[in-house]
Amino acid sequence: MPQSKIIDISVGLFLLAGFIAFVVLALKISGLTSESWQNTYSVYARFENIGGLKTRSKVTIGGVTIGKVSDIQFDKERYQAIVTLDVFEDIDNLTTDTSAAILTAGLLGEKYIGLTPGADDTFLESGDIIEDTQSALILEEFIGRFLFKAVQKRNDSGNSSANNTSNANIDENN
């Protein structure tokens, strides 16, 4: 085979390998499916505290992804976060009383938004606001509250077990 033929063929194979690599990156590695290119519409939700929610976080109903967070802004007047949710166009039956909660995947996993549809007859449209929201669970606050309650309980039930008081308890009393 002449040298120039070998060059032509190897360049052809090279370009083909590049194309295959591109397809692998798209399908196998980023898990791109036709769903990822779906058109979306935007609804908004206000939260007191979004915790570690980021843009590109998932939006789910019953654990199934139906969109993603596309923007997070701060509302200066209400001191709240406004989160923009891009929901797939074919999910057009979110009731107006849908509630949104910021959830955590596993104990330390990433934050995502879980929607729970309500019972209204009317549906959310592009630009609508979800009123019923539940902020992110902040682990530090949660632990703090739990300890505080535990101490209160103990104080209420008398000081008989003073010997066993934990360090936290002492701190609280002081």
Binding site: I29, S30, G31, L32, S36
Partner: peptide, 15 residues
Amino acid sequence: FWSNMQASVEFGEDV
């Protein structure tokens, strides 16, 4: 291994 990768890798952004 793969599902976590696919969940976090965004084609439009990362690739």
